[in-house]
Amino acid sequence: MAISTSIWIWISALLTLAIYSFLYKDNPFYKFAEYLLVGISIGYGISVYWHNTIITKVYNPLVHDKDFLVIIPLLLGLLMFSRFFKNYSHLSRIPIAFIVGAGTGLSIPSSFEFLFKQVQGTMPTAFTIGNLIIIIGVITTLIYFFFSMEHKGFIGKVSRVGITFIMIAFGAAFGYTIMARISLFIGRIQFLLSDWLGIIK
């Protein structure tokens, strides 16, 4: 494999290097790449919203299907813009009330079910060391988060076990995070060495 001839690969390779140049020192190349990223993601987001929301969910139903019920949510949505006018900004609370109300209503039962699933999953179906550790971990961690009891005596000892479990979990999460960051770096190095420079297959 040889060095790439595609202009797009060159652009992405140079932008990658521009971002990494920050590791040495803040510089104009880095700034340029960063602003470019922010601008492009907003632009891309708007174009996707335009096509998939405004066109398919508002324009098409209204103009082609003559479904005038769409006007109600549309008006509610437009009320969000009242925030720009000081005297009418309170109107934006109406759509927010709808979103919060429906959102809470939808999520509370599901959250409960989700919690029960987790409780159910914690129950041991076989008596193994692993299951025992899980159940001790869950109970002691819950006790650590008791706020209406002083952490003294027995409760104090149990909650100390709880915080130990929490710290072990943090340690595992930290290790995984290092792994993830390295993976992201590997992804880029692979792109630079293989797609761009063609050094490796």
Partner: peptide, 27 residues
Amino acid sequence: IAAEDVMKVIIIIILLIGLILGILGPG
């Protein structure tokens, strides 16, 4: 905060019952 704590106690009790039943039943 107080109500949440009571809920936590309830969950712990359910877990303990589950633990005992789990050992005696499937175990």
